[in-house]
Amino acid sequence: MKTPDISWIGLLFMILLLAVPLAVDYWLRLKMAKDVLVSVARMLVQLALMGVFLEYLILWDSLALNILWFFVMVFAASHSAIKRNKLSFRKFWKPIFGAMILAVAFSVLYFNALIINVKDLFSARFFVVISGMILGNSMKGIIIVLDKFYTNIIKEKHQYFYRLSMGATKHEALRPWVQQSIRASLQPIIATTATMGLVSIPGMMTGQMLGGSTPMLAIKYQMAIVLVIFVAMVLSVVLALFFSIRVVIDRNGIVNTLD
């Protein structure tokens, strides 16, 4: 069994679906037509480009290129995690980029080597594709952890300074905010993990079954990917937070997220 192709006519029908949201928009005067069209257009262009890139990455399957692509993806993800929090890119990019590289590389290589046991750990079909899947989730975790941590510690600086004034080490003084922000960043994925398979069929499984895999095989992959994504997120969040603390908070405990 192979995945049935989508023909040009099929693609046309796909675009035609947009008539539904546009009709709703017109009928209820939501004034969202422009937003809808822009976001759909972005999605189409971005995925088309991604499709072209992946096509060639898989075709050439060059080690150097796969690794370069991995670095570019991680850099883009770090960039958007920092920008979303309106933090200083100059100050934060090294810790965030470093954290993501370590966390995602560890997780994807673990998956390739020990779980699915492929021969070529860096082959595009596995390395590039799986790391892409992991990366999005790690980025979401990092966005939450940085936001919670730096917003709250600045807002609650009286409590933080009080702890420092007692002679607390930097990490003793920071403990409440480290705990709060890591908890907050992991809560969403813990909640989704608990409801997995309860109502919806996860995207990766759906894809594999459309591609002809048996449900049991698809489920094994799904279970593995959920755990790998979770571990990558834990590592990303913890490393990103501690690496950034080293750069942003000086030895006297003064927090400076700017310049």
């Binding site: 609650e156 009286h158 409590q159 009080y162 004034s165 409440p176």
Partner: peptide, 10 residues
Amino acid sequence: AYVPQIIDLG
């Protein structure tokens, strides 16, 4: 031993 003006112990 410091007693701050704004006391916030969490």
